[in-house]
């Protein structure tokens, strides 16, 4: 039986290039399987991903919505950004300053056992203008 700790060394990530013009999701070079799996197993991470998949959220909004401390949320968000599962954007405030907000980029996560090795693939959402229009229109 494979030791879970060795998964990262046994696994290989796929780096197929998706056709962005026809497919809403894309795959890029992935973080380690163990890194992504560990992140996804975390309850706070699941809540952060769920919340940021609908609307861009700031760390304080996430802390409030996920019922977690700002420190915890901040740490998880940084890990998600490093793993490229969440993207940072800026949102203008009424006073002229900007807030950092976060948007989930994860679309799906797939693990396959092929020829004695675990392969994993993280498909990422390629949000386009149609998604932005739908998101904005829903807010009215």
């Amino acid at each position: 039986m494979t030791d879970p700790a060795d998964l990262s060394t046994d696994s290989s990530s796929t780096t197929e290039d998706a056709d962005l013009s026809t497919d809403p999701s894309s795959t890029t070079e992935d973080a380690d399987l163990s890194t992504v799996a560990d992140l996804l197993a975390d309850e706070h991470v699941q809540r952060i991903l769920a919340a940021t998949s609908v609307d861009p959220k700031s760390k304080s909004e996430l802390a409030e919505g996920c019922d977690a401390s700002l420190q915890t949320v901040s740490r998880r968000v940084e890990e998600l950004v490093a793993a490229d599962l969440v993207r940072e954007e800026t949102r203008a405030r009424r006073d002229g300053h900007h807030d950092a907000v976060y948007v989930a980029t994860l679309d799906s996560f797939e693990v396959r056992l092929r020829d004695g090795a675990l392969e994993h693939e993280v498909a990422r959402m390629d949000r386009d203008m149609t998604d932005e229009l739908q998101r904005l229109w829903r807010k009215f």
Partner: peptide, 14 residues
């Protein structure tokens, strides 16, 4: 753009 939203998500709003 809105039509793409209709085809993609069957959105009535779009």
């Amino acid at each position: 753009l809105a039509l793409r939203g209709v085809l993609r998500d069957r959105s009535r709003q779009m």
